[in-house]
Amino acid sequence: MKKSKNPTSKTRYINPYLGGVLLGLVLIAANFISGRGLGASGAAKSTIVAAVETVAPQHAENTTYFKEYTDSHPKGAMKSWLVFQTMGVIVGAFLSGVVFNRLKLKVEHSPKITSRRRIIFAVMGGILFGFGSQLGRGCTSGSALSGMTVLSLGGFISMAAIFGTAFALAYFLRKNWI
């Protein structure tokens, strides 16, 4: 435990290297059992496709991107591995929140900015991440982490592009975080 960290703090996290090894074991299990890695944005895409299909079926039929997806998922957009996995993520994170006593409805932000500013940036970041995850065929979990695990060239490029860009822009957004 470093001196800079407050041992009496209410938030307790597991050792990051232990977390990494455990996450690596989950990646191995996913590949060994299901022949694939982890993901997150794929489930969001399934949700969007299913929602558009329900609200505007005609429109879903006429939109190439939705059509390509529904054609590859004949049993329905939500019947996808990542949808079930992501439901698990939500349950798992909630359980961890219970175990470590972190369940609390709040907007987390630096004391130097308002909740309003934090929310605006969260929405903008979400829009960019959603768009980028489609263009890049997967997000930090699916493309970068899972891709790197199977030594995919695309996985390494994704990782470098995501983290490289975030580092490059960090200076301009420092007010939001430090």
Binding site: L128, F129, S133, A161
Partner: peptide, 16 residues
């Protein structure tokens, strides 16, 4: 796509 996600990461503070 990765660059757009990177911008989203530093603005939004999360990934999906």
């Amino acid at each position: 796509g990765g660059m757009i996600m990177g911008a989203g990461f530093i603005m939004g503070g999360y990934c999906p």
